[in-house]
Design a protein around this nucleic acid. Sequence first.
DNA 1: TTGAAAGCGCTACCAG
DNA 2: CTGGTAGCGCTTTCAA
Lengths: 347, 347
Amino acid sequence: MGSGRLTVREIARLAGVSVATVSRVSNGTGQVSEETRRRVLRAIEEHGYRPHHLGRALAARRHGAVGLVFPGLSGPYFSELIQGFESEAVKSRTSVHILCTHLRADSDAEVIEMAHRVDGLAVLGGTVSPDTIEELAAMLPVVVLAGDGPAGVPAVRVDNAAAAAALTRHLLADHGLRRLEFVGDPSGSPDVTERWAGFRQAHRELSLPLPRAPIRVGLQQPDGVYAAEQVLRRLIPPQGVVCANDETALGMLVGVSGNGLRVPEDLVVTGFDDITMAALVTPPLTTVRQPVRELAARTARLLLQVAAGDAGRADSGLVFPTELVIRGSCGCPTGTDSTSTTGRRRT
Amino acid sequence: MGSGRLTVREIARLAGVSVATVSRVSNGTGQVSEETRRRVLRAIEEHGYRPHHLGRALAARRHGAVGLVFPGLSGPYFSELIQGFESEAVKSRTSVHILCTHLRADSDAEVIEMAHRVDGLAVLGGTVSPDTIEELAAMLPVVVLAGDGPAGVPAVRVDNAAAAAALTRHLLADHGLRRLEFVGDPSGSPDVTERWAGFRQAHRELSLPLPRAPIRVGLQQPDGVYAAEQVLRRLIPPQGVVCANDETALGMLVGVSGNGLRVPEDLVVTGFDDITMAALVTPPLTTVRQPVRELAARTARLLLQVAAGDAGRADSGLVFPTELVIRGSCGCPTGTDSTSTTGRRRT
DNA sequence: TTGAAAGCGCTACCAG
DNA sequence: CTGGTAGCGCTTTCAA
């Protein structure tokens, strides 16, 4: 029958006890004699009573929910992220609110609105202005996911710069390439900012001239196709392109072969993220694997922990390791994937 | 400063009015003299007061939230779905709870748990048992998304069967193919069930022998690669495969070309959904476009509407049109996409 | 071990 | 137009 028809009071009356006792029983708190407990339990079962969430939340001053704020791009990356986060939250009987800010002008206000409905907030790096993050952090536990927050706000991330540098070094040193370009917009997200930084860093380390400005495009496949046109139109095309993520790299592959050129013979292409498709295309994509799901799961756990008061040494944040995944698109012989780990795990 | 430090009572005292008046002002309900209103508003602004969500929700007996339950597969499909749903909900200042049931044994219990925290629930077809859906529908507004619910539960969907039949007819009649196979598990989701039904239906309509049993695989790219191996191993391989979605079709493409065969010359391949990648691969994928985002958005709107009491003629549900997208992978000459619409829109 | 009662923060009804 | 007040459903002291 009806949802919240039954209240504690009803059950209390039915079981011949006080509401306090019913509460104690249904929460497992306090001392209740075995017999009373059994009686209450029976009344609860019999009538299918479930404590009303709002009543409980208001009295306990806990929402029993956490929020996840992300820009709302499509693709496998965000699905993984959401699932990793959710799977961890549900273990703590905490529900997950989501908010996509993408293309919404007043998103910061919406995030603040959401902050009033949850016990903690995970924000994807670059989604919300630093000022707003600080404002949020002052009112509830906040963790930045895949990015950096202001001082004092813990962040869970991978070392994108180191990974991008390792990847670039592979092209520069192992393959002897000299003319590389970066595809992606460093101002679009912290991930890309760092990858671009790592790309340049590798050039610097090898005392090579710094690369030209990045081809600023979005993170989706069509953006990669578009970038391919840009690249192939040059008088002196690059020998390789380091793409900000796998999806642009996949688009690049399409655009390049659409122009009758071959990868890696005519142009080397690399990606970032190691989405499923990366291993399946021809040639298979050399890329960087990052544990997106674990990243998100760890973020959720950290958030729940802080929200629960275990303020441990959480402030520091976490850096997850990445793996360089060498496949065919960089010019390496295609065979079993070869991988090497970059970055350490700081707890 | 603190989050909910301030209460109505404080503001009432500060503004020299009663809590009732503060409530009226902050909700825009009831009549308040311009002067009083101004005074209250000033107190609110000055102290940055925001009504506590839980207090309000408990008193109003509304959670101000809706839930979205989905299996939790990866890929572009779910990202689109989530975003479409969320974008609509946020317009009504309603927050979105998500729950992924994938691989979780006690998911039905979790769904019911969630039902106690929201004003309405959207459930992806095939995610929750029909019995549980009925149970849920008895306690709050429920809409089934991409599937069919029990009688009385509105559903928002596309006519998968008609679309799959149209696609299959194209292969059978226009291309004169005779040996087709279906790739996908009809028992996996309502979408696939219907597509499989449409596939057979087309054969029946043309008085052709019914196709053999489907190749039962999942909906991800690697599943398609695996299916390709199955298909190519046959003594008499099929002339074409109709895949349950684009991702398996993409995997099929990879698996086929990995075996040195060509699409569509040696094997025709079609997909379903028209994800971005479908247009970008070689050959571009012939598929069916379904308006996933609109589907989800409409679901949210319907749900909010029912939850708000506008029980209109919502019971019926909605069927969105699909579009057959003819590209190269079916053997048609590659060029500008050619599309034709299937299904009508029922309001 | 149990119950009475005081809220949690807000809305809404009913007088005035 | 405004204020007092009775809850919304539950938790949690404080006594008994």
